[in-house]
Design a protein around this nucleic acid. Structure first.
Lengths: 198, 198
DNA sequence: GTCTATAAAAAGATAGAC
DNA sequence: GTCTATCTTTTTATAGAC
């Protein structure tokens, strides 16, 4: 492919690719990777079905795109939380962000967690590993905050916090009850407040 | 259908039905409901593909069977834990049972949790609701133990404990690391010990 | 780069002989 | 009740005109 940076064609092509990525992330979150068809994604992205293959050669490439879209959203969130001076406040901001998404979580679960669980059923070391990487991204960021807080075993605390989030999302989803997110979110906030400062 | 109770035909038929249920539970846990084909289940149950439809009219009936097989396993476990006199010991026994399944959890996640998450992507109030019921079965049993322990808000504690289990299973699975189950399991045991008695 | 039509494959479900 | 062969539908993917 020749260099098309800056040309109108490249701009619209990139825009279309981006629309497909975002549609993939949204539809895969709602329907799951297996139940989502190329046609579903194409419809939401407002791209003709046949044209999808110009941007993504296989369905798995679209699922991978959904995964990196989730990673992007996560980095956007942690990036904005990094503005806060106090690591404890950063963690509390993360929890508040989770709770604010309670209705979506109660209906479809955590976007990354449910996708990871689905992809982990495969035995080809491909997308499942990629999903693990996104989860690790979150774990690593949380671990850093605990570390800055001067906590011993920041990695263990990160497992506990992220695990609690995944667990409450799954339960809220299975019970179809957003209140689970509020209740457990409040408990996590209190827990963070109870931790000693460095 | 005429009454065949006790006849050799009924016995082998029931046995076959049971083999199919167990095979469904096992294969659906490993591959997920969507990726599992009737042929996959038939192969494991050692039943010819065409014959499966004599016992289960649709694939969804097989998934429902897998779900109730998981419910049966759960009741088997809680039933044996009920033999213990101390509710705290019952809860600790539950956690030890979870940790003892760490390798399976690290490879395929919690059988019920991952299935519930997958079924919750559907919008027909059918199997997803059924999955919620199985999760609630566990929540209710755990809540009763906390209640007998004299804890205030036993339902909140049940959400926390079951949520922690679902979360650690998902993380162990995503990271492909059974050690996550040991680490979080130990934390939960210590937490239970730290709770005041009635 | 875009889009329609269609090929190819997979999987659920059924018909009907035994 | 059992099993084979096959029908039908769905979905991924491609061919080829524009």
């Amino acid at each position: 492919m020749t260099d098309l940076k800056g040309s109108a064609r490249a701009r619209t092509a990139d825009a279309k690719r981006q629309r497909l990525m975002r549609a993939a992330a949204e539809v895969v979150h709602r329907q799951g990777a297996e139940r989502t068809t190329i046609a579903d994604i194409a419809r939401v992205a407002e791209v003709p079905v046949g044209n999808v293959y110009y941007y993504f050669k296989t369905k798995d490439e679209l699922v991978a795109a959904a995964l990196s879209e989730h990673a992007r959203q996560l980095e956007l969130l942690t990036g904005s939380l990094d503005e806060l001076a106090d690591p404890r406040e950063r963690l509390k901001g993360l929890i508040k962000a989770w709770v604010s998404q309670r209705d979506l979580a109660a209906r479809y679960g955590c976007p990354t967690g449910t996708l990871a669980a689905e992809l982990d059923k495969r035995d080809d070391g491909g997308l499942d590993v990629e999903a693990g990487r996104v989860i690790r991204l979150l774990l690593t960021w949380v671990e850093r905050q605990f570390s800055e807080l001067g906590q011993p075993e920041p990695d263990g605390l990160a497992l506990t916090l992220v695990g609690a989030y995944q667990g409450m999302s799954l339960l809220a989803n299975a019970l179809r009850d957003p209140a689970v997110m509020e209740r457990e979110g409040a408990r996590l906030l209190a827990w963070l407040d109870s931790l000693d400062a460095a």
